[in-house]
Amino acid sequence: MLNIRIIVVGKIKEKYYSQALAEYTKRLSRFAKTEICVVKDQATPEKASQAENLEILEVEGQRLLDKIGPRDYVIVLAIEGKLISSPELASMLKLIPLDGFSTIDFVIGGSLGLSDAVKQRADQKISFGRITLPHQLARVVLSEQIYRAFMINEGSPYHK
C-alpha cells in the first residue's frame, strides 16, 4: 500500500482545521496509509533580522529533513513551485509509485517558508497558487487535494 506523509512545521491550534484534517485523513485511508508528521516550530522574534530568520529556517528545515527517508519521493509546497491542477496531481500520484516509490512526502514549511536544503531535497516543488495561505489551512487544502486526486483516478464524480 502507498504511504502518504504530510510533513509540516508547527501544531494546529484551531479545532476546525484539526477536524477537517482528521476527516480527509480518514477518507484517504482507503487509498493509502496517511500520516501527518509535525515538527516543532522555532519561536520567531517579532522584529527578527534576516540572519535570525535564516537561522530559524535552517533549524526547522533540519527537523523536516530528519523526517524524510532516503527512498521517499518528496514534494514540497512552495509559492515559487509549479502551478498544478487537480488532474495533474492525480496523474502524479498515479505515476510516482510506478517509479518504485512507496512513500510520498508532502512538505509544508512554517511561517517563514522552507529552507534551501529542504527545497533541494525535493523531487518536485508545487504550488496551489500565488496566494499565501495560513500554514494550518494549507494542510487542509493539501489533504483535500490528495483525496480529490485519488477520486479522480478512481473515476469518481467527486471531482466535477
Rank of each mutant, 00 (worst) to 15 (best):
G110I: 00
L98F: 07
R71G: 07
L2R: 12
A117K: 08
P134M: 08
E14W: 12
P70N: 11
M92Y: 14
N153G: 14
K160H: 14
L64V: 12
A20T: 14
E46L: 13
A32L: 07
I131R: 09
C37H: 11
A149T: 10
I12L: 14
F128H: 01
K13V: 13
E46C: 09
Y73I: 09
S85L: 04
G81Q: 10
L64Q: 03
S49D: 00
I68Q: 02
L95S: 13
K94W: 11
E80P: 00
S91A: 06
V8N: 01
N3Q: 10
S49F: 00
V8S: 08
L65Q: 06
E55L: 10
E35F: 11
E14I: 10
K11G: 02
T103M: 03
L137D: 03
L65F: 09
L137P: 03
K119P: 04
K119W: 05
E154F: 11
E52L: 01
G113M: 03
D105E: 05
R30C: 07
S156Y: 08
L21M: 10
L57S: 01
D41P: 00
T44V: 15
A122N: 06
V140E: 02
I4L: 12
Q136T: 12
G109M: 01
I84K: 07
P45E: 04
A149Q: 07
E80N: 09
H159W: 06
S18M: 08
H159T: 06
R71I: 15
S156D: 13
S86Y: 05
S156A: 05
E58M: 08
L83T: 15
G109A: 04
L64N: 03
G155W: 09
D123V: 14
D116Q: 13
Q50H: 15
D41Y: 00
E52R: 02
G110C: 01
G69F: 07
M92R: 14
A51H: 05
D123A: 15
R63F: 03
P87N: 02
L114W: 01
R30I: 12
N3D: 08
E154W: 12
T103Y: 03
A22F: 02
V118F: 07
T103H: 03
L93A: 05
A22H: 06
R71Q: 15
A138F: 08
V118I: 02
Y17T: 11
V118D: 07
P134N: 12
G155E: 11
A138H: 06
I131H: 11
A138W: 06
K15N: 12
P70G: 07
S156T: 07
S102K: 13
L93V: 12
